[in-house]
C-alpha cells in the first residue's frame, strides 16, 4: 500500500523531470540548431535569457527521482544502475558539461571560445536526454531486470534508441513551445513565428517517432504495449494526444502562454500512461513494486518527506516561476553595474 503510494510519487517526479528538465534540454536543442553566430544571435539570446534563472531548479527533479529510487526501491535502483551504468554515467557527464558550458558561455567574449562553450552546452542538451530516454527504454522493455550484468544490449537496443530519440523530440517540442511564449513575453514578434514553426515541426517528429516506436518495439515490449493500447493506459494516451493537438492550436493564437500548460500536460500524460501500462511492475514482468520496495518505515517517512517537500518547495517554485514570468529576474551586466555606480556617485 505504502509502496504503491511511493511508486506513484516516483512516477510524478519522473513526469515533473520530463517536463521541467525537458523544457531546459529543448532550449539547448534549439540553441544547437540556431545557425551561425550572426543568424543564431537573436534566438540564442532569447534562449539564454529565458533559461538562465530557472534551469538549475528544473534539473533538481532528477535528484528527487534518484532519492525516491534508492530509498523507496533499493532493488530497482541497484538493478537499473548496475545494468545501465554506462548510459547513466554518460548522462551525468553530459549534465555537468552542459551546465558548465551554459554558465561559461555568458561571460566569455571571444567568439571562438563562445562557440566551444556553446557547443558543449548544446550537444550535451541532446546527449543527456537521449541517454536518459535510452535507460527508460531499457526499463520499459524489461531488459534492466535485477541481476542483469551491464551490456550494451540493455540500453542500445531498438526500444532504447527509439525511446532516446523520442526523448530528444519531446524536449525539443517542450522547448519550442516555452520559447514561443517567452518570445511573446519579450515582444519579439519574429521569434514567436520562428519558434512556433519549430514547435509544430517537433510535434510532428514526436508523432512519427511514437508511431515507428510502437511498431518496431512491439515484440520486445509486449507488456507495456498492451497496457498502452488497452483500458486506462489507452485513455491517458488519447488525452495526451488531445493535449498535444490543443498545444498545436493554442500556439498559433495570440496567447501562446496557454500552450505551455497543454504541452506539459501532454508529456506528463504520456509518462503517466507508461506508469499505468507497467502496473504492477517497476521493471516489466520481472520486478513488481512490492518486490522492489524497501522497508516499510522508511517508505512511510519518505511520504512524510515528500509532504514536507510539497509544503516547502511548492511555494518556492511558484515564487520563482512567478518572478520569472513577471520579468523580475534578469542578469546584471557590465553596463548595468557601471550605470548603478554612476548613479550612486551622484
Amino acid at each position: 500500500m505504502t509502496a504503491d503510494a511511493v511508486a506513484w510519487i516516483l512516477l510524478l517526479a519522473v513526469a515533473a523531470y520530463a517536463c521541467g528538465g525537458g523544457v531546459d534540454y529543448g532550449a539547448g536543442f534549439w540553441d544547437l540548431f540556431a545557425g551561425g553566430a550572426e543568424r543564431g544571435e537573436r534566438p540564442r539570446r532569447l534562449i539564454d535569457h529565458a533559461m538562465a534563472p530557472v534551469w538549475e531548479t528544473n534539473n533538481v527533479w532528477l535528484v528527487f527521482v534518484l532519492i525516491l529510487m534508492w530509498t523507496g526501491f533499493p532493488v530497482l535502483f541497484e538493478a537499473v544502475f548496475s545494468a545501465m551504468w554506462l548510459p547513466l554515467a554518460l548522462a551525468a557527464v553530459g549534465l555537468v558539461l552542459r551546465g558548465a558550458g551554459f554558465a561559461l558561455r555568458k561571460p566569455t567574449r571571444r567568439l571562438a571560445r563562445r562557440r566551444i562553450y556553446g557547443a558543449a552546452f548544446a550537444v550535451c542538451s541532446l546527449l543527456t536526454p537521449f541517454f536518459l530516454g535510452a535507460a527508460a527504454g531499457g526499463v520499459a522493455s524489461g531488459r534492466a531486470a535485477p541481476g542483469v550484468t551491464a551490456s550494451a544490449e540493455v540500453w542500445a537496443n531498438a526500444t532504447s534508441v527509439v525511446a532516446g530519440l523520442l526523448a530528444i523530440a519531446a524536449t525539443a517540442f517542450l522547448g519550442a513551445v516555452f520559447l514561443t511564449a517567452d518570445a511573446r513575453r519579450f515582444g519579439e514578434r519574429d521569434l514567436v513565428i520562428y519558434f512556433r514553426l519549430r514547435a509544430w515541426c517537433s510535434l510532428v517528429a514526436v508523432g512519427v517517432l511514437a508511431l515507428i516506436g510502437l511498431s518496431v518495439t512491439r515484440k520486445h515490449t509486449t507488456y507495456v504495449y498492451h497496457g498502452l493500447t488497452h483500458g486506462f493506459g489507452l485513455l491517458l494516451v488519447l488525452l495526451s494526444i488531445a493535449a498535444a493537438a490543443a498545444t498545436a492550436l493554442l500556439i498559433g493564437t495570440h496567447a501562446p502562454g496557454w500552450a505551455r500548460y497543454t504541452s506539459v500536460a501532454s508529456v506528463a500524460l504520456v509518462i503517466a500512461a507508461w506508469g499505468i501500462a507497467q502496473r504492477p511492475y517497476l521493471v516489466p514482468t520481472s520486478l513488481t513494486v512490492q518486490q522492489a520496495a524497501g522497508a516499510t518505515k522508511p517508505l512511510q517517512w519518505l511520504m512524510l518527506v515528500t509532504a514536507i517537500a510539497l509544503v516547502l518547495v511548492g511555494p518556492a517554485l511558484v515564487l520563482l516561476y512567478r518572478l520569472d514570468t513577471h520579468g523580475m529576474l534578469e542578469a546584471q551586466t557590465d553596463a548595468d553595474v557601471e550605470r548603478g555606480a554612476a548613479q550612486g556617485q551622484r
Binding site: 532519492i67 534508492w70 533499493p74 517537500a309 517554485l317
Partner: peptide, 21 residues
C-alpha cells in the same frame, strides 16, 4: 544502495528539498 538504500537513504531526501530551495 540495493542493500542499504532504504536504511540510510532518507537523509538524502532531506537534502533534495534543500537542493530545491
Amino acid at each position: 544502495m540495493g542493500r542499504w538504500g532504504d536504511v540510510f537513504g532518507l537523509g538524502f531526501g532531506i537534502e533534495a528539498w534543500a537542493f530545491f530551495l
